[in-house]
């Protein structure tokens, strides 16, 4: 399968924001971030900016530092050095839960659904901090069902009864119902059928282009990620080695061979 085929031309053409001017403050900025042990950093002086409404695919081999980067951004891992800025504000003193409440959402890798809770309860939990009022929260949960039809049929099922695809749909819907401004996703397509992956990517693209959601998408599934991304960033040994428009990255065989392995 070729990366360039099947890509909606409009995705990068109309969706990509204009070149950053002095007024376009990045939604998310990472400045000289270093994580891990001295002498063997997992993230090594990484600097990256993501503009509002932009989808950035975070690519790289296993162990390149993608998961660690996302966990550091959401506050689960403390950096040794460097800064993380959300809309220009340094998050160093902000806890994990307060970062979430400021609109920085993360869908961690794997089964992040709370399996003891029902589908409905998972969605409610996601919407809770944004919508303390019951009526508004119900409306937000309903929007979650609108995103993924299969979830509505399983609203009373406990999480452990869901299929892998349904779990990932629920994890994504649960993050989106709180209307985050920046969404970090770790390998959402892992182990899922291509049809489900396409559905997930479609929802992500709509959210970014429709509501201005900023997305940082870590993926092994390069083709899927680049099909909706505006920009691709390749990590190697905890540092950015390539930062290019997604279209260029997908179309340039030399880049693909060198960094993406296909």
């Amino acid at each position: 399968m070729r990366a360039a085929t099947g890509r909606p031309a409009a995705a990068t053409g109309t969706g990509a924001p204009a070149a950053p001017g002095p007024a376009a403050r990045p939604a998310l900025a990472v400045d000289g971030l270093t994580v891990g042990y001295a002498g063997a950093p997992v993230i090594d002086g990484l600097t990256l900016e993501v503009r509002p409404g932009e989808i950035v695919a975070l690519l790289g081999a296993n162990g390149a530092g993608k998961t660690t980067l996302l966990r550091t951004l959401s506050g689960l891992v403390a950096p040794r050095a460097g800064r993380v800025l959300l809309d220009g504000d340094d998050l160093a003193a902000t806890s994990v839960e307060d970062r979430a409440r400021r609109g920085l959402a993360q869908v961690p890798e794997g089964r992040s659904v709370v399996t003891e809770l029902t589908v409905e309860e998972n969605l409610e939990l996601g919407a809770l901090w944004r919508y303390p009022g019951r009526a508004e929260r119900r409306a937000a949960v309903a929007r979650g069902y609108d995103l993924f039809e299969p979830l509505a049929r399983r609203r009373a099922s406990p999480g452990h009864q869901l299929s892998g695809g349904e779990r990932q749909m629920l994890a994504l819907a649960r993050a989106l119902v709180a209307l985050p401004r920046v969404l970090l996703l770790d390998e959402p397509s892992l182990g899922l059928a291509p049809r489900v992956v396409a559905q997930l990517m479609g929802v992500l693209r709509d959210a970014a282009h429709g509501t201005g959601l900023t997305v940082l998408l870590a993926e092994q599934n390069v083709t899927s990620a680049l099909s909706i991304a505006d920009r691709g960033v390749v990590l190697s040994l905890g540092a950015v080695v390539v930062d290019a428009p997604a279209a260029d990255l997908a179309a340039d065989p030399a880049l693909r061979h060198a960094y993406l392995g296909f």
């Binding site: 959401s74 689960l76 806890s95 994990v96 839960e97 307060d98 979430a100 409440r101 959402a105 993360q106 961690p108 992040s112 709370v114 399996t115 003891e116 809770l117 309860e121 409610e124 939990l125 996601g126 809770l128 901090w129 944004r130 649960r174 993050a175 709180a178």
Partner: peptide, 20 residues
């Protein structure tokens, strides 16, 4: 709901803004 979620999935709960 928050008490139950925090007990079984503290990390995910924090990522959802729950004050675990």
């Amino acid at each position: 709901l928050q008490l139950r979620a925090s007990a079984v999935a503290p990390e995910v709960s924090r990522l959802l803004g729950v004050r675990v």
